[in-house]
């Protein structure tokens, strides 16, 4: 489903990713670990094609980094869900509108939007807060809204960039549990984090970025 082959990325002539190879299969749960600045976010940006590699190729579903046009990038992103550490919610609109926003941009029918938004809000446990504004929510609740927004288009892959970075340990575990539930329902999840405790609890595949290279690691028992 996702394949990176011999991918190199550099910023200001400084190599960040050096001939990396990675494959993610449908329905997998992958934790991407590495120190701050190791290139985790860069790898995620490659997947939603906010960044095109200097060399090598990235394929996500039927989309290829070498041939994708700027008009196709929105189509790719509709197949993905992206969640950030800082949530990136729209402060000027309600929880419902934040989630519905993803569907408006895909030209969904108004009746379908209502049904889907209420459904996904129920899945993340926020039905009762649908009319609240983001600033009225806790950090954990805001991240749930961001996840709901990412899920409402039924993506094939959910990308989570440090999703618990701004949250306390208990809330972090709640979010992890939610991500695992989503994964159980069939959506592949790629979670970038430097929280090793969370990775241990996730019990999925672990991929590490170190010295500009990517490789699978096994946790010691």
């Amino acid at each position: 489903m996702v394949k990176l082959s011999n991918v190199c990325v550099s910023f200001n002539r400084q190599l960040v990713l050096d001939h990396i190879n990675l494959e993610i299969k449908a329905g997998e749960f992958v934790s991407l670990v590495g120190t701050t600045g190791s290139g985790k976010s860069t790898l995620l940006r490659l997947l939603y094609m906010d960044l095109i590699p200097d060399s090598g190729s990235v394929s996500v579903g039927k989309f290829l980094s070498g041939t994708i046009s700027s008009k196709q990038i929105p189509m790719l992103r509709r197949k993905l869900g992206v969640v950030y550490q800082d949530f990136k919610l729209l402060e000027d609109r309600s929880v419902y509108d934040n989630v519905a926003f993803s569907l408006y941009v895909t030209n969904a029918r108004i009746a379908d939007i209502k049904k889907k938004v209420l459904n996904v809000l129920a899945n993340v446990g926020l039905s009762h807060k649908r009319n609240s504004m983001p600033h009225q929510l806790s950090g954990g609740e805001q991240q749930r809204v961001a996840i709901a927004r990412a899920l409402v288009n039924e993506p094939i892959l959910l990308l989570a960039d440090e999703p618990t970075g701004n949250l306390d340990p208990t809330t972090s575990l709640d979010i992890l549990k939610l991500l695992k539930d989503i994964n159980t329902q069939g959506t592949a999840v790629l979670m970038a984090t430097h929280n090793y405790d969370l990775v241990r609890k996730a019990q999925g595949r672990i991929v590490q970025i170190k010295d500009r290279k990517v490789f699978d690691v096994k946790l010691k028992r």
Binding site: K71, R77, V82, K88, E91, V105, N153
Partner: peptide
């Protein structure tokens, strides 16, 4: 900018 970034993130076309 934030709303524009979010629109792009969720797959809005440039025209939209």
């Amino acid at each position: 900018r934030k709303i524009i970034a979010t629109m792009k993130l969720v797959g809005a076309t440039r025209m939209f």
